[in-house]
């Protein structure tokens, strides 16, 4: 068995230790004797997502956003929309998560069109939602409790076409108001959690890997790993959040 992982925009969407998620995905496959091949897809590379089993998109700076949008609108937007509908698993974080939505409206009313793969939009606010936080994933996302770090001023609102990824236990989540965190649609997992997300949340990481393996091979099983260190780091943050 093998998963082909596409790391989209590692050159500009790499702000919060996002590489850690890629390392975690590949290590946890390799430790189980499953192959992992990561392909970097920086700005300017061809748009095709065919042949990949999992796509990762991280968060980035405002500075490169314009460059990024120009590149997306050169065909990657269409390709992503089609792949999402086709059930390709995506893990998208912070800026990468917002980007899959319909648009971002800045605090002073300027609207920036995103790619519209998910029924959600984001509105800039004056407060920065920042800090360690936790949420419980819905059953369809494995049901585990996830700890992470959020740092965003955009408030994301979900349309009727998508489900939240989970319910906020402590912190802000999508908007600090409705208790929702992230988004789930087909095999897309979107979240504000960096930190990075996966190393401290091995159950959630395995759920994503299993989603990708089952899609590719029909059925799949993941042998258990010794997650003592991961669980200790996870529980420590959770205990601190109280």
């Amino acid at each position: 068995m093998e998963l082909k992982i596409c790391h989209m925009y590692p050159d500009v969407l790499n702000l919060y230790g996002d590489g850690g998620n890629i390392r975690c995905l590949t290590r946890r496959l390799q430790w189980r004797g499953i192959g992992a091949e990561v392909t970097r897809m920086p700005i300017g590379s061809p748009a095709s997502l065919s042949g990949y089993d999992l796509v990762f998109i991280g968060g980035g700076q405002d500075f490169e956003q314009q460059v990024l949008l120009e590149d997306l609108h050169r065909g990657k937007d269409r390709e992503i929309r089609a792949a999402v509908e086709d059930g390709l698993p995506f893990l998208t974080i912070c800026g990468g998560y917002q980007m899959l939505g319909s648009y971002y409206e800045t605090y002073d009313g300027q609207r920036c069109d995103f790619i519209g793969a998910l029924d959600l939009y984001t509105v800039g606010s004056k407060v920065r939602m920042i800090g360690n936080y936790s949420f419980r994933c819905g059953e369809e996302s494995g049901g585990s409790v996830v700890v992470g770090f959020e740092n965003h001023s955009g408030k994301t609102w979900l349309g009727s076409g998508v489900q939240p990824l989970g319910k906020v236990l402590s912190g802000y989540g999508n908007n600090g108001e409705d208790g929702s965190e992230g988004a789930r649609y087909k095999n897309v997992f979107g979240t504000y959690s960096h930190g990075p997300l996966l190393p401290k949340n091995p159950a959630f990481c395995d759920h994503i890997l299993l989603t990708a393996l089952e899609r590719k091979y029909g059925t799949a099983e993941l042998a258990p790993l010794d997650d003592t260190a991961e669980r200790a780091a996870h529980d420590e943050v959770l205990a601190r959040l109280g």
Partner: peptide
Amino acid sequence: GTDVSWIWD
């Protein structure tokens, strides 16, 4: 810095 994600960079 309260965010330790940088150790992964």
